[in-house]
Write a protein that binds this DNA or RNA. Sequence first.
DNA 1: GACTGTGAAAAGTTTCACAGCT
DNA 2: AGCTGTGAAACTTTTCACAGTC
Lengths: 234, 234
Amino acid sequence: MAANLSDSSSGLGSSIPAVEVPEVVISRLPQYVRTLTQLLDAGVEVTNSQQLGAQLQVTPAQIRKDLSYFGRFGKQGRGYRVRRLLTELKQILGLDSEWNVAVVGVGRLGNAILNYPGFNPDGFHLVAAFDNNPNNVGREVGGVSVQPMSVMAETVAARDITIAIVAVPSAHTQSVIDQLVECGVRAILNYAPINAQVPAGVRVRSIDPVLALQSMTYYLTEPERQSNGLHPAG
Amino acid sequence: MAANLSDSSSGLGSSIPAVEVPEVVISRLPQYVRTLTQLLDAGVEVTNSQQLGAQLQVTPAQIRKDLSYFGRFGKQGRGYRVRRLLTELKQILGLDSEWNVAVVGVGRLGNAILNYPGFNPDGFHLVAAFDNNPNNVGREVGGVSVQPMSVMAETVAARDITIAIVAVPSAHTQSVIDQLVECGVRAILNYAPINAQVPAGVRVRSIDPVLALQSMTYYLTEPERQSNGLHPAG
DNA sequence: GACTGTGAAAAGTTTCACAGCT
DNA sequence: AGCTGTGAAACTTTTCACAGTC
């Protein structure tokens, strides 16, 4: 493997991979970050691929392989220093920066999102909220003043917003996403149960509890469909 | 490929696959179901792998291959009858049955879940709610009366509950999941940002917006990391 | 002519197994 | 002795391409 051109042995190297990193690897890194954060909070200073694998229910080899895309963060015979690895992974994922996020749609769900305290500790700042409904415009929700959709372009530019959370009814979601993309937003977290279409270069993830339930019922029906014993807690 | 032993040409065959169906395939079926439902609602009677693929942003070959694990649902030269394919896929996923679901944790999030109207149309019935807090016990939320955790085993058995939605604080989540598993629940939708551990035979899916955001920021950082142009709207 | 269903090829991902450092 | 980092092997998943049916 053509490992890596960056000098990551010189502490916190910026780890620019020489080889395209598989998307599935990137999707696992946030889980590694979370587990390492827990270990750090628990006062653990050194860990290893075995321990991380047990926590994450992933093989130790996979963890080592995943990390090898970005550099050499461990020490043979010893393992990984938790704080160092955590810092590196956060940097790789861009979690050493702060991200300004807009919420579109301030109905029941949008309200809950704006009041949810879980985003800020992770560097995601909900700095703007938009809604079409004049009854909502001007209200203060979760410390943010709700603006009309018409000022979205200005606000997104002014506040350097690159990420949006969309919580509008399904029927309006695609149109809202189109507008956001038009404004320069490049990552979207969609809460509507639709298949959002975005141009290349823009990312979408969807939060869809019904889809999650539906992908489990298959295994609850008679024919012994337990498949593997491992639990891809997606 | 050793296709399929079931006689699925004789309409709505129960499609017991001879070969273990890959988990990724199962995870895509609910999306097919959703798209087919939309087509049906739009009055479309016949579709094909090309059209479905365009909607779902998946190659037509993948759709045909996925379906081939369960039977032959199309007609060469014509495509798929929307209603027929939808019925078959729902049956495969177990969505032709109704599922009784318990919600554990009736805080802000649990409340929102119990009031969310999106589960029922899809055959998931929130029939019980549990909470440890005496202030919540006895309250009526989303048409369900909140019960103490102590009666969980009884209620789960009495109401034939196989699925649970867990919306309790992270610190209590694993313990609640253990109790649910003990009660015989075999599928869990977890809203806490933890790595839930369950025994083989039990499924977990997690709803974790922060993880979703964190898996996108990588692509928002300078080095041109757009990777593919396709958008795995996870 | 159009489109499915499917073996076979290609691509992607995981696991193995071991050299090499601590 | 213990554990990483990594080529190579094994396995999985996707895509191709075309025979067969409508």
